[in-house]
């Protein structure tokens, strides 16, 4: 009996959270597409999320591309397939590692910061104050953050991650493993399909939406002072990472399942 009660409570809790998140997402989307738009706030967020995330995303992509090249070369040499290195690096980076690693890094950086900022505003009554000043917090705080992350992920961060990641592999292959630079680039370009790029950018946009949605959602509903903000921040990062990995599989299935 007790066990059933516990299971019931867990199920109700889950359904309640799912419903609240669904309503939050629908409200956010309605504010993203309906005026008024706060362009100043949007540009500020684009700078914070896009421009200031570039160094960490660039470094991650560079070292991942380099390590990937070393691994593929060593693994490929076991069955004389070293020459497949440029192909595997470009497909691995563009289809998978570029968007996923970039998403996870941005989730750690951006989702946490959004949850902490909005959560602090919630517990210090700044969000209530905004509402009393006839300004919808969804319009002013949440919509610009979600739009900025959804745009910056594909059109700035993941494009840069893809290019630098491939460059990391190129530098190791030509500088250390004896590949010819011209051949390497030519093979890379030959095997890269437009579909790979579409998949990469689609994943980036989906990840960007989830990263900002989770940061804003957990911050908006945080309560109970500093501890509540801390919990909201942790939950934002964990749930954003989970959604990135889940949606990564779904988008891959849509694009590449035969």
């Amino acid at each position: 009996m007790n066990f059933l009660a516990v299971m019931g409570r867990i199920t109700f809790g889950f359904l309640q959270a799912a419903g609240r998140l669904g309503i939050f997402a629908a409200t956010t989307i309605s504010h993203m597409i309906a005026p008024p738009f706060y362009f100043r706030s949007l540009i500020q967020q684009m700078m914070t999320i896009g421009y200031y995330s570039l160094p960490v995303v660039g470094l991650t992509a560079l070292f991942t591309g380099a390590a990937l090249a070393l691994n593929i070369y060593e693994g490929g040499s076991r069955f004389n397939a070293e020459s497949a290195l440029p192909t595997i690096v470009v497909i691995g980076i563009v289809r998978e590692l570029g968007p996923v690693l970039c998403g996870l890094i941005v989730a750690g950086r951006v989702s946490a910061s959004m949850a902490a900022e909005i959560g602090t505003m919630r517990v210090t009554e700044q969000i209530d104050a905004m509402a009393t000043l006839s300004t919808d917090p969804f319009k002013y705080l949440i919509a610009p953050r979600v739009v900025a992350t959804t745009l910056m992920m594909p059109f700035m961060l993941v494009i840069v991650a893809d290019v630098i990641g491939v460059m990391g592999g190129f530098l190791i292959a030509t500088g250390k493993l004896g590949f010819n630079a011209g051949n390497y680039m030519s093979v890379t370009m030959d095997f890269l399909e437009i579909k790979d790029i579409y998949a990469s950018l689609t994943k980036a946009a989906v990840f960007g939406f989830f990263i900002s949605l989770m940061g804003c959602y957990h911050g908006y509903y945080s309560r109970g002072g500093a501890q509540g903000v801390g919990i909201a921040t942790t939950n934002a990062v964990v749930s954003a990472c989970m959604l990135i990995l889940l949606s990564n599989y779904i988008v891959t299935e849509i694009f590449f399942a035969t």
């Binding site: 210090t124 009554e125 700044q126 209530d128 104050a129 905004m130 009393t132 006839s134």
Partner: peptide
């Protein structure tokens, strides 16, 4: 929103946007 425009509010903690 129209009704909100009639209101002004001073919060206990001032609730200024930091």
């Amino acid at each position: 929103k129209r009704i909100q425009e009639k209101f002004g509010m001073l919060f206990q903690s001032a609730a200024l946007f930091d």
